[in-house]
Design a protein around this nucleic acid. Structure first.
Lengths: 190, 190
DNA sequence: AACATTTGAGGACAAATGTCCTCAAAGATA
DNA sequence: TATCTTTGAGGACATTTGTCCTCAAATGTT
């Protein structure tokens, strides 16, 4: 629970009392490697804080190929955010790529917290704002960086992903074919 | 003011009294064609509702070339959102591409509204959530659509932009060179 | 009106990336 | 252990896109 408290305190100075009152809405959940936190087509009813482990979010493109859109790492949140906000079926799947420990809160409970608590109103808005900034950063990278630059960024910012995810998934994450990723990896290792 | 009220009522059922109490924080602003709402390097202190007109947001890439990231149209909001949220210098410029009428609110006044009013807490969070969804859609388009598909989407969703923006700006918006856009336009007109 | 500047189309060639394929190594399974 | 499957590297060629350039039409300026 400590890691969640620390995470929330990067948003606002939530008191220990407020935190105790909040934490009861969160439930622990274990996900074995390859099992799913969110299934495509289902409405995403939960947000999860990742205590330990790694997840991959992906969608199916028009050729029914999996395209990885995000790797989610420890001490951050994961959810199919659009599905969660709009309470509509998720286009995304979220799958653990190693054994993972989550702290999960339901949509209804979160809406209750918003209603009850000024602190949580602020947390909710701040999380939305941060998610926006992450997505803007993602779009900016998509626009401005070559696949090689994106690969080097991954290598630098999330090096553990290279051991945990397959080459095929990393290629779709970078927006290139496996063939192109193969060329990039050859270049990078000289 | 009516158009702003209608816009807000797509978010939550704000009462006439609440709206009157709110509207006093908004100021009318006229922008002549080619003049700026946000200058890069300055902290963006305002959010604007576009009563009439069109704006273009762009940034300078590593070669100091203008890259258009968004065309902003009537009855929607515009701001350099990341700069506004984090109160840090804007990477984006926002420029009117025709004579434009705005309703503008300052950062401090908006924070006051958040503090004072539960309705505005919800509006603030909902706007952040919507901005997130717009950005996610943008990223999805960047990943999944070819330049030709993006051009056809622009043609369909914002046809007026084709008269108002230059070919060079549309090309950077689509993420291709003018040469490629020229090829696309030739194909599309057969 | 005369001239300069900007804008959009498109030719020629180079570079980047995709498609399709094969092969070898690593894992999985019977 | 023998065999099947999956995974990652990379060859050969096609396609797409970029770079650099020219030209004509439209627009702006004196």
């Amino acid at each position: 629970m400590e890691s969640l408290k620390m995470f929330l305190r990067t948003i606002t100075n939530i008191s220990d009392a407020d935190f105790e009152n909040t934490i009861k809405y969160f439930q622990s959940q274990h996900l074995a490697k390859n099992s799913y936190f969110v299934l495509p087509g289902k409405i995403c009813q939960q947000v999860a804080f990742i205590k330990k482990g790694t997840l991959r979010t992906y969608y199916l493109n028009e050729n029914a190929e999996e395209v990885t859109s995000c790797f989610c790492i420890e001490n951050s949140l994961t959810t199919s955010y659009k599905s969660f906000i709009l309470q509509q079926p998720s286009e995304l799947a979220i799958q653990a790529i190693e054994d993972t420990e989550l702290l999960v809160i339901d949509y209804a409970d979160l809406q209750n917290l918003y209603q009850q608590s000024v602190v949580w109103q602020k947390i909710g808005r701040t999380i939305a704002e941060r998610q926006y900034i992450v997505m803007e950063q993602y779009a900016s990278v998509l626009c401005n960086e070559t696949a090689k630059e994106k690969y080097l960024r991954l290598l630098k910012e999330q090096p553990s992903i290279l051991n945990k995810a397959s080459i095929a998934d990393i290629a779709t994450y970078l927006g290139v074919t496996r063939r192109t990723l193969s060329r990039i990896r050859k270049e990078v290792t000289q």
